[in-house]
Nucleic acid binder design. Structure first.
Lengths: 229, 229
DNA sequence: CGTCGACTTGAGTTAACTCAAATCATGTGG
DNA sequence: CCACATGATTTGAGTTAACTCAAGTCGACG
């Protein structure tokens, strides 16, 4: 897919006049990253933000002991690394490609100039940041107020919603990455998946496929109305 | 302080032309809340957002068992409740006045109209949301990657920074509220304060005043390079 | 078929929780 | 100004979810 088509297909740029989209296409810089490659590090100075043309990127924090907390995994058409564009401060987290990934890089000054002249772009960006705040709010709630089984249950329901209510889920990521999203470690996640299977809430092929067998119980788990025994 | 002066003194409206500030003053609705009064609840439909003229407001999540996680405490001149303005969804958290509080309420549609015509307002709002994202990122990191003593240490350093590096700190809030900010419970916080005092990192009057006695050690705690024994 | 990384399972430890009780602080009415 | 009521904080004792460390087991791929 060429640059202009990527831009046209990106939600952030919906409602933006064609000529501005063309302007954007002219200022972006294409970049590609290999699986595992670092895109930016916490503390790095920022010169702009990214949109994913193809591939996947994880944005995460890491502790001195090496435990990792994934903030979000971004896929096609999603912007990431915007925060420093508007705060003027360094990146507050790390970003790494989870697969071969190509991005469009938008230099900060050009982009801000365009925001000044295009209110719909500003409103789209406000919407993107607001959605992200909402997600983070949910993550904080999970980490602080739910136990790991509840977080996993909420995550399964989230995946199900994304594929409009399906009971057959594809995790799309490794169990290790999932543990890092849920704020736990692979051993704990593994034990909980085993328990949920034994209690008949889910079944699994042991790989990345999971079937929701008792949605009611999973919802109760996610809402803290129930616990695994 | 009258409405126009509050608006003129609010960072969000810096750089906004006088005439737009006057427009704003005309569309806002003044509201006051007593200590403990709920301003909005999670799930409520939003019609706009708030700026604090005087007083303090906590925004928080709560679990079915009643444990509370404070997302942020807002003070004079700070806007809150903006997320639903740009997502169109209900409030993702609760807001409650911590003291007698007066707010200016900005109706959504009027405000969005103004954002469309005033790029500097849009950029200011983008900056506010980005700062908030950064704070939430730090909170997620604390909850997921630090133990409670580390979170407390980070919070003390945050307070110290805010009063440009002072060693004499005023908590400004009750220990119970502080526990809720740190994602723990009052008993645990109390034990940790006792330990930190015994190890000579801080001294306290038992109330809301704390003195940093060993900043180096507190920084190490906050960075996970050290633990309480 | 062997190797490597991902995942699972087992055993032991621990930070933080719950529940209960004691103590302290503050404000009110007498 | 004192005595008590109420709420906040601290302390004690016991429990537990989730962690660490270690040892398998599984699966994909060369």
């Amino acid at each position: 897919m060429d640059t202009e088509n990527v831009i046209a297909a990106t939600p952030l740029f919906q409602g933006l006049e064609k000529r501005y989209q063309k302007d954007l296409a002219r200022i972006v810089i294409k970049q590609t990253y290999r699986r595992g490659e670092m895109i930016f590090a916490e503390g790095d100075q920022s010169k702009g933000f990214y949109i994913i043309a193809t591939g996947r990127v994880k944005v995460f924090k890491i502790s001195p002991e090496g435990k990792e907390q994934i903030l979000h995994i971004f896929g096609q058409g999603e912007p990431f690394g915007e925060v420093p564009v508007f705060t003027g401060q360094p990146f507050p987290a790390y970003a790494e490609a989870l697969a071969e990934t190509s991005t469009l890089f938008f230099p900060r000054d050009d982009f801000i100039g365009l925001v000044r002249t295009e209110p719909s772009l500003a409103l789209n960006m406000l919407s993107v940041l607001s959605m992200r705040l909402k997600r983070f709010t949910a993550l904080i709630e999970d980490l602080s107020l739910k136990e790991v089984p509840g977080r996993l249950a909420a995550y399964l329901l989230y995946l199900s919603d994304r594929s409009n209510g399906a009971n057959e889920l594809d995790l799309e990521i490794s169990k290790g990455q999932l543990a890092s999203i849920l704020g736990t470690i692979p051993e704990t996640l593994s034990r909980i998946l085993t328990k949920m299977t034994k209690e008949g809430l889910i079944s699994s092929d042991g790989k990345r496929h999971i079937r929701i067998k008792d949605r009611m119980a999973i919802e109760q788990l996610a809402n803290g109305e129930k616990r695994l025994t």
